[in-house]
Amino acid sequence: MSLLAVENLDCRYGLLQAVRGVSFEIAQGETFALIGANGAGKTTLLRSIAGAHKPHAGRVTLDGVDITSLPAHRRVALGIALVPEGRRLFPTLTVEENLRIAAARNSTGRWNMKSVLEVFPILQPRRHMPASTLSGGEQQAVAIGRALMTNPRLLLLDEVSLGLAPIVVDAVYRSLIDILQEGATVVLVEQDLTRALKVSDRVTCMLEGRIVLQGEARSLDRNQVVGAYFGLRRPASGSASA
């Protein structure tokens, strides 16, 4: 059975419809990449899965249980963690406080302060500094570490490379690949097509709130993805779902 299922999800901001009738399923252990231009609805979709945005219509289920009406903090307890766009750390809290605040109560999971600092050793000397004094790459590491501290079953990553120097993005992704190889279930929003195709099992391309292309990362042709990304031409019927 799939871990997460999204059924006919509609999300709106007032009159603006950001996500239109999106459905997909994610299996345990899968890495699922969401790509698309700015304003395609990727962030809204992730926020709806995490519970930070209330959908207008449709259903989100985890393990077959309907969680559409649960607030975000209850979904964290069920195992959904979002690394939000722009990192959104607590600026005056120290790195350690930022991490410990997210720690699951009485959790015996894979992730704790020690294991997170092992994956992101650059944070070790920064532990007692306020999060606002860190560089962009370090802040992104804290944001990912903070999500891991909740010991998620489903990790949602929203543009972790946004605003970071390429060399820092490489470092962040090296740590991420370690996490992915341990069998984590991940939904990844990424602007960098090459990177998205490289790390993920399955790729979904969104355009104006709809899914325009979906398929195995290995089987997708780059030109096909680029076409769907910009909406230049309709993708071939075999791999498309509108």
């Binding site: 930070a52 975000a72 963690a81 600026p91």
Partner: peptide, 25 residues
């Protein structure tokens, strides 16, 4: 204290606090 951190975190960013499991309400 954990409750104190939760209060500071919510004051700084209630939306992000929800996303790490804090009942901001």
């Amino acid at each position: 204290t954990r409750a104190g951190w939760a209060m500071r975190a919510t004051a700084e960013d209630a939306d992000a606090a929800e996303l790490v499991g804090i009942d901001s309400r």
